[in-house]
Write a protein that binds this DNA or RNA. Sequence first.
DNA 1: TCCCTTGTTTAATATGTTTTAAACTATCTT
DNA 2: AAGATAGTTTAAAACATATTAAACAAGGGA
Lengths: 157, 157
Amino acid sequence: MEKAKDMLIEAAVNLGESLGLNRAVCQIYALLYLSNAPLSPTEIGKSLEMSKGNVSINLRILEQWNAVRKVWKKGYSRPLYTANEDIEMIIFDKLKTGIEKRLSYVKPIIMQVKNHKDRNLAASNEKFFARLDRIERLIGKIEFFLQNLDTIKAFTK
Amino acid sequence: MEKAKDMLIEAAVNLGESLGLNRAVCQIYALLYLSNAPLSPTEIGKSLEMSKGNVSINLRILEQWNAVRKVWKKGYSRPLYTANEDIEMIIFDKLKTGIEKRLSYVKPIIMQVKNHKDRNLAASNEKFFARLDRIERLIGKIEFFLQNLDTIKAFTK
DNA sequence: TCCCTTGTTTAATATGTTTTAAACTATCTT
DNA sequence: AAGATAGTTTAAAACATATTAAACAAGGGA
């Protein structure tokens, strides 16, 4: 049983790393996701053979992502932690906000370059501006795509 | 003009890093993408103030991704390089094969765990197996999504 | 053929990230 | 209140990756 959990946790790490996540974050989330009851940081650290500092840091990260949440057990003053199960949403939100942030940085730069385009240069740089246009269309597509992902998600349910 | 290129290259680096790409790869691709004519490794290195070793390594990576290609100019024995312009395809293919590879690693592990599920344990681990099912459905969704991305891409054109 | 230029490979350096160990803070138990 | 337990923060270490510098190989022109 524990062996199975370990294998699944390792698989989660493997998947998470392709999204640029670190090992600890994936391990902790997967452990909580597969646990029947909420766990304390100490239990997490013991189970994953990970320093408590590392548990603390990465639990905070997961909380910021809304991937885990505190559970207050009656009589206990310290919270336990449990996984929020809608990992689709978690992954999606993280990707979406990340991409949007990047695009909002790139877009004004392209605008700026296009507006500075002076007539003399333009002739000799036909190709250059054509490629800028192409990039702008791509950005438009990505934005369209993000706006519609919610719909698609619902559709595939 | 060169200033504009530098800004755009920097923006490309910024975008690329959110996909986990290194600086050099993004710079080289963006430079070739925005250049009117194919460039030699030496020219690339000079333009980006980057060692020729680094240019060489990362040009090879870009070639493997089909993101750039060699151009043989008459009379020259060494190739120049130019960007393949369909970066949507490049990004998409890279993401798609990456995700597929990861899923093909994870799927059999889940199968295995589910098949080992023995009756005694099963009762006490209702929740555990329910979550496994949930993950399996998620993987199914992702696969469906990937299979249909081509269609969606065409649709948004 | 010999040198000069160009490109590749490799080992070392530099940079960035993750993890831990240890100091610190807060909470709980007696 | 004192000692023990749990959690956070930080500085250092371990680790991974990217970049360069330098040795090497291949081709081009004298």
